[in-house]
Design a protein around this nucleic acid. Structure first.
Lengths: 154, 154
DNA sequence: AAGCGTGGTCAAGGAATGTTGACTTGCTGG
DNA sequence: CCAGCAAGTCAACATTCCTTGACCACGCTT
């Protein structure tokens, strides 16, 4: 399974629609047509065959995403906006602050015992996120990203 | 900037090579040809034009990735293997264990004051990772992933 | 001045993609 | 038994993709 096969499988607007639709629940052929408001059977057939690397049939014969399919869905969300990485960093910082404030009021004499390791962790995590994963803190690079698509997979 | 444009820009093996090469450093036309061991100028020209949504020229006229380009690179790594998500979860669990063992030996009488909030956090993080982000703990789904490609962007 | 490297553009042609619409097969209710 | 729906398959055709190879303009060097 090489990367370009997976991206080929989602490099068409209709195929991204199919990906998102199947990520909600497995569907049969006619249900998929109805859901996407498409009349041509051949069209669905063609694109489903193109998506072979990421779509399988389940035990009921319904079309469903395989692991690579969910990775692809995930990739679509990554490209749409890298928001959750930023949220993960912020939630880590939030936990760090709450934890240390909590310790300060609960047992101030041992405050440093918590502050030092948590600070080390948060510095490492911020370095990893910002430098290695190129997470931008402002989110301005996502200004023109797609909207109205709060996927459950993020 | 829609998702399928970005995926179209990386749905060919050579374009993924270009993406990875330009992620290391911006390059000129001839340098890019040399780096990829390609003799045909037209071929590079064709694929660079295909990659227009994710490739720009910098102030020196060199080809370089824009934000969408780095998101695409990131997506390539996501599809190749979702490993870092698992490592992030494991590193959080590691910090949780070390932190609590440390507290147990440092100030056992206040052990619970740390155990309770950190446990709440780790349970939330595990739920979020496993259920919402479909991270698999075993890593077996990556057995046939691409190898020999330790990107700096992971 | 002739040759070479850089940084491309462009046309041609075969291969692959995208779409339509006709056709098939199997099942089910009336 | 036959109409109608589900679940596709397939041929045909226009369009797009991919690759090759020829060509061009500019600057530098010998």
């Amino acid at each position: 399974m090489s990367s370009d096969e997976v991206f080929e499988a989602i490099s068409h607007p209709l195929r991204i629609d199919i990906l998102k639709t199947l990520s909600k629940k497995p569907l049969g052929f006619a249900d998929l047509k109805r859901e996407l408001r498409i009349t041509s059977s051949g069209l669905i057939d063609f694109h489903l065959k193109k998506m072979a690397p990421i779509v399988e049939r389940d035990s009921d014969g319904l079309y469903t995403l395989n692991q690579a399919g969910f990775a692809a869905l995930y990739a679509v969300n990554v490209v749409s906006r890298k928001g959750w990485q930023r949220r993960a960093l912020f939630s880590n910082i939030g936990v760090y602050v709450v934890m240390n404030v909590y310790m300060w009021f609960a047992i101030p004499e041992f405050f440093l015992l918590v502050l030092i390791p948590t600070t080390a962790w948060i510095l490492f995590y911020a370095y990893w996120s910002i430098v290695k994963r190129r997470v931008h803190l402002t989110g301005r690079e996502n200004k023109d990203a797609e909207t109205g698509d709060e996927s459950q997979n993020e």
